[in-house]
């Protein structure tokens, strides 16, 4: 006989009572490095533009100044370099027996929970910059895939690999049970 006895809400495991694990401590530095690189490219671009303009109009005695562009750099750089140390500490993940939980966001705080028995596949990836800091991204795919699949960026590479194996193991187990 099929039974479905009622369960009190307080008896259910609560997502908010988990202890969160933070991202890799090198993650802030990795994001800063990426931003620094991007800024470096922008500076190179402006220098090149200045060079092109000055050679093109060298004969015409026209002095075109790109001063305002140079001014933009420190203005843009401040949020670029402050943001990672604000956002990274607010990211976190937690593993439970039957699901994985991920939180992120500074202004819009989101907590996402994915049960293992709904995961289609798991992907681990890393860019060259990630590898330099021994960091990896774990991407978890569920069916439908609307609204983008869950991406956890900033895990230590070893942890990401362990998580991938662990989750796949759990996913496989849940399939067999069916």
């Amino acid at each position: 006989m099929f039974e479905n006895s009622e369960i009190a809400q307080d008896d259910l495991p609560q997502v908010d009572s988990v202890s969160w694990l933070g991202m890799d401590e090198k993650f802030v530095r990795r994001l800063l490095a990426e931003n620094a690189l991007a800024l470096g490219f922008v500076i190179i671009g402006i220098v090149f533009l200045q060079f092109v303009i000055s050679t093109a109009f060298a004969d015409d005695n026209v002095n075109i100044s790109l001063g305002w562009l140079w001014l933009m750099i420190p203005v843009a750089a401040v949020p670029f370099f402050v943001w990672p140390s604000i956002s990274v500490p607010r990211k976190g993940y937690a593993l439970r027996d039957k699901d994985i939980i991920y939180k992120s966001g500074v202004f819009w705080r989101t907590v996402t929970a994915i049960p293992f028995n709904r995961i289609q596949h798991v992907e681990q990836s890393s860019t060259p910059l990630d590898r330099h800091f021994e960091i990896a991204t774990l991407q978890i795919f569920t069916a439908g895939g609307s609204g983008g699949d869950l991406k956890i960026h900033g895990l230590p590479a070893t942890v990401a690999e362990q998580l991938r194996v662990f989750i796949l193991d759990k996913v496989g187990a849940s399939i067999e049970r069916r």
Binding site: G105, F107, W108, R109, T110, V111, T112, A113, I114, P115, R118, T142, A143, G144, L150
Partner: peptide
């Protein structure tokens, strides 16, 4: 349901 998220704005 495949996954659930709870979001809060300020």
């Amino acid at each position: 349901v495949q996954r659930i998220s709870v979001t809060q704005t300020l």
